[in-house]
């Protein structure tokens, strides 16, 4: 009985963290912050799926959804920030290639 209760608490905590990460991702107004939180959300989602007995899908989500998708969105967010900074201070050229 206590084992199932502990598991239920574990499940609830997993889902609350997942939903909290989703809300944080969707409600952050800075695109770069949103992109980083989106990667965290994807990694947490893959943990949840591993809990649900889907290790294949968890691997794919961690590698493709969070990794590659996150990298795509992150580089797009960097470009959006660079272009908006270029608009903010027009005379100086934008910093095209910040160090990685």
């Amino acid at each position: 009985m206590t084992a199932t209760l502990a598991l239920l608490i574990f499940d609830v905590l997993m889902l609350l963290t997942l939903l909290g990460l989703a809300v944080a991702t969707l409600s952050s107004r800075d695109p770069r912050r949103a992109a980083i939180l989106f990667i965290a959300f994807g990694l947490w989602l893959s943990l949840v799926w591993a809990r649900l007995g889907a290790p294949d899908v968890a691997l794919a989500e961690a590698a493709i959804g969070a990794g590659l998708g996150g990298a795509l969105i992150l580089s797009a967010a960097r470009r959006a920030r660079a272009s908006s900074q270029a608009k903010a201070r027009a005379p100086t050229p934008p910093e095209r290639t910040p160090p990685v």
């Binding site: 989703a22 949103a34 989106f38 959300f41 989602l45 949840v48 649900l52 899908v57 959804g65």
Partner: peptide, 30 residues
């Protein structure tokens, strides 16, 4: 646009999550 894309991805994640959750049965293989 980028926030809309993140939102779309999270919508998709919700659908995927629902499918994974319905595929799971206690004890049996999923």
């Amino acid at each position: 646009l980028i926030r809309k894309l993140i939102a779309l991805n999270i919508m998709g994640s919700g659908v995927f999550h629902l499918l994974i959750a319905t595929a799971e049965h206690h004890g049996e293989p999923a």
